[in-house]
Amino acid sequence: MTALTGPNIRDHQNTSKTFKIGGLQGGQHDKQEIETYLSQIDGVDQVKVNLEEGSVTVDFDPGVIHTDYLRGTLRSLGHDILV
């Protein structure tokens, strides 16, 4: 017996992107807000906020979500993206 297979679906490899951000004076409140909002976006697998480093690391599927959208979401939450 052979297994039935569906149509060819492009396999996406998750990628990880770290954003240096400003405006984390709210501490744990900012951490929870960022993790909550970003984790609800389709294609986002995991979000980690490091308050000491002022960074947000996002594991996501680039075939579903673009980094510009993630940047825009961080800005909409009141955080500047630092270079």
Rank of each mutant, 00 (worst) to 15 (best):
M1W: 15
M1L: 11
M1T: 07
M1P: 04
T2S: 07
A3G: 07
L4I: 15
L4W: 14
L4R: 14
L4C: 03
G6I: 04
P7E: 15
P7V: 11
N8R: 04
N8A: 08
I9M: 07
I9H: 15
R10V: 08
D11S: 12
H12N: 08
Q13A: 09
Q13E: 07
Q13T: 07
Q13W: 09
N14E: 12
T15S: 13
S16F: 10
S16H: 13
K17A: 02
K17D: 00
K17F: 10
T18H: 03
T18D: 05
T18C: 05
T18A: 05
F19P: 09
F19N: 02
K20R: 12
K20M: 06
K20Y: 10
K20V: 00
G22A: 14
G22R: 03
G22W: 09
G22T: 03
G23T: 10
Q25F: 00
Q25D: 10
G26Q: 05
G26R: 11
G27F: 01
Q28K: 02
H29R: 14
H29D: 13
D30M: 02
K31V: 00
Q32C: 06
Q32Y: 00
Q32P: 02
E33W: 07
E33H: 10
E33N: 02
I34Q: 01
I34K: 02
E35I: 03
E35F: 03
T36W: 04
Y37M: 08
L38R: 05
S39V: 14
I41F: 13
D42I: 02
G43V: 02
G43K: 15
G43W: 08
V44D: 11
D45S: 12
Q46K: 06
Q46E: 06
Q46V: 02
V47F: 00
V47D: 06
V47M: 06
V47Q: 04
K48Q: 06
V49I: 01
V49F: 08
N50G: 08
N50I: 15
L51K: 14
E53S: 00
E53G: 00
E53A: 11
E53W: 02
G54H: 06
S55F: 06
V56Q: 02
V56H: 12
T57F: 00
T57Q: 04
T57C: 06
T57A: 13
V58T: 03
V58P: 01
V58R: 03
V58G: 02
D59T: 03
D59H: 05
F60L: 07
F60D: 09
F60Y: 13
D61I: 13
D61K: 12
D61A: 04
P62W: 15
P62I: 03
G63A: 01
G63E: 12
I65V: 12
I65T: 06
H66D: 09
T67L: 10
T67W: 06
D68I: 04
D68N: 10
D68A: 09
D68Q: 14
D68M: 01
Y69R: 13
G72T: 05
T73E: 15
T73V: 10
R75Q: 09
R75L: 11
S76V: 05
S76R: 15
L77N: 00
L77D: 00
L77Y: 07
G78V: 11
G78T: 09
G78N: 09
H79F: 11
D80Y: 11
I81W: 05
I81P: 04
V83H: 14
